[in-house]
Design a protein around this nucleic acid. Structure first.
Lengths: 239, 239
DNA sequence: GCCGATTTGTCCGTATGTATC
DNA sequence: CGATACATACGGACAAATCGG
């Protein structure tokens, strides 16, 4: 991301998160920021827009741009925005071990197509992984990748980080991700794979991901033990 | 919302949802749309940006703007973006009956402040409501409003739609909403209030809402029976 | 209550860069 | 290589909301 507005966004975000611009105070006015960053009105506004979209600020006409972000109470494991397991683990200060339970090539039949959003007949790589945190198996990921988009993928890579591989090695750009969060009863398989204690339900997050070519190349169902599941998001009206 | 870009956004969204621009096809190019809507490059781009943010399209440099939205498999009750119960009910084709269980004025102590994100000493209106759908009590809403922001609020209004009242009568503009989704064990109170069948856990969505003045005026905890809970969201990389 | 200064919001027109075909 | 299409940035203009004198 080499855009100017994005650098400005990151700088402002850092200043908010580090407390330079505290909660419920105004950041400097557009005019001052334009001088500081030596850019135009429009470029700065784009940065502010992104900042707003992520729930950091609330611009108020005639007054200024108010900081509305505050350090959240940390729960055990927080997911947010577009983020892979490795990133989420690092941000939460946890080491995540991944074991690959299944890795195979399949052709989508009607049932799989219905479940994943792919077309019947698509060649897919089916990967099942178990995530271990705090000494327990807590997350069960069942993924399907479009085979043609992830050539070269191996079980070894899957055990590390698939997204790092796709973005780094294959140069793929992940852009949009449509999520659904629901709750489901644990299946016999869930009980076998995860350390469920006496929980009988799971938090299930389904993720359909598109790359920069607009290709839907991944559907992942993440099945979380409920006490470790926490999802954050920000909605902005009018956007 | 009287902005031009917003009208264009709504028109394009409608065309995508009604199938005029189908899944995995390109919408007309910027140039053609500029002619159609008689606006400039920048204005149209803003509309496209909003469209992208909501997961409807994926612009691809050098190629076009691809539709990536498809009619979702409908679950029993879907929540999305900024939307109140009335809107969600209508969109899901359900009639929601609301009963007010509690309505009182309180002063936030340390514990309440910690839980809700308000400051200790703030005067709050505490409202508890039960939502009835499909002949069962399915959602238990525990809300706290900043008293000074919701003057004139009555139990009768709370039974109807608080947000309609705030936006319509008080002219308040709701803007940002920070959400957390977790799972919790049902309490004795939950069991008393809701028709939980044999479920022992709930999907809990906490919502902290800011108005256009940047005032955090509401924190609501919505406790959903798990089989009726479904939450949708879209994340876009780089924004 | 009015007016002017400040600040954000929207839009226009233009130029240039980058990716695709 | 050129045409097409999206991406970023600049500079200017006016509207709308707020605030203080």
């Amino acid at each position: 991301m080499k855009a100017i507005y994005y650098d400005i966004y990151k700088d402002l975000r850092e200043k908010i998160m580090s407390g330079v611009y505290p909660y419920q105070t105004y950041i400097p006015s557009e005019l001052k920021l334009i001088e500081e960053y030596e850019c135009t009105h429009n470029t700065l506004r784009k940065a502010l827009q992104v900042l707003q979209m992520h729930g950091f600020v609330q611009p108020i006409r005639g007054k200024g741009v108010l900081v509305i972000w505050q350090l959240g109470r940390r729960t055990r494991f927080v997911l947010g925005d577009i983020e892979n397991m490795r990133e989420a683990g690092e941000r939460n200060g946890l080491v995540i071990e991944t074991s690959v339970r299944r890795f195979e090539r399949i052709v989508a039949d009607e049932r799989v197509a219905q479940l994943t959003g792919f077309a019947a007949g698509d060649e897919l790589i089916r990967v099942e992984r178990v995530r271990r945190l705090d000494g327990a198996n807590l997350i069960f990921d069942k993924s399907c990748f479009l085979a043609s988009s992830v050539e070269g993928l191996t079980p070894e890579i899957a055990a590390d980080s698939i997204f790092t591989y796709l973005e780094g090695t294959l140069g793929m750009q992940i852009t949009t991700s449509n999520r659904t969060i629901t709750m489901e009863y644990a299946t016999a398989e869930d009980r076998e794979v995860l350390d469920l204690l006496d929980f009988d339900m799971l938090a299930v997050m389904e993720n359909r991901t598109f790359n920069s070519d607009g290709v839907h190349f991944e559907t992942t169902q993440s099945r979380h033990r409920p006490d470790y599941f926490s999802f954050l998001t920000t909605a902005v009206r009018g956007y």
